[in-house]
Design a protein around this nucleic acid. Structure first.
Lengths: 105, 105
DNA sequence: CCATTCTATAGCACTAGGTGACATAGTTCA
DNA sequence: TGAACTATGTCACCTAGTGCTATAGAATGG
């Protein structure tokens, strides 16, 4: 049992699906939908929601920013609605919202 | 035992540190260093490294992009060195590199 | 064998997200 | 009182990221 259990499991599942696909059991369309299906849904977060997420974790804007690898001024702008988080930023925030700050540590 | 174990644990640890701080055992400097200390170090990733990370997970650029909530063209640019991932993107990639794709699903 | 789909690369125009630095003000605390 | 932490604010800058479209090779399927 390695430490990369989740990663290996992911690879294993994908390989199994790949085998099913090669075997003609499923097509690539389904294969792709399978990949998309197991993702956490991303919805645009309101400024208050972002602030709520941060305060739920009991951290300052500066510390929160460090976790996300962004500047603290940007976090401030998110929470005031001056800027809205985009692709990767929104994904990270969604992860924190669902699973907590520790999962992105 | 709730599902938010990690998050609660994080909050608990922070509250404990906060108590220590209030009690005068540690100062805010140390408090801040504590927060920074438990983060996965972020280093700039080379194009080949990004491609290696993706191929290790056995997914196409399109699927990989979906996981990170970015466009597939951007992933292509990352791997060819046309664009370099920044703050939140770099954090996400680092997470995938360390813990696997499943942890950001 | 041909048609289709997936794949990755490529180019281009646009825009807004993110950076950095610095100033301000309220607060907590030695 | 002074020092450090907090959040907000502003300003200028710029590049990361988007969206669309086109291309070409490889893999697949009928």
């Amino acid at each position: 049992m390695s430490k990369k259990y989740k990663s290996d499991a992911m690879a294993a599942i994908h390989e199994m699906m790949e085998d099913l696909h090669v075997g003609g059991v499923i097509d690539k369309q389904t294969m792709r939908r399978f990949d998309d299906a197991c993702l956490t849904p991303i919805r645009p977060l309101k400024p208050e929601e972002i602030k709520a997420i941060r305060e739920r974790e009991h951290v300052s804007q500066a510390v929160f920013a460090n976790y996300l690898n962004v500047t603290s001024s940007l976090v401030s702008k998110w929470e005031r609605g001056e800027k809205r988080p985009s692709g990767a930023s929104l994904k990270l925030l969604s992860l924190v919202e669902k699973n907590g700050l520790a999962t992105v540590a």
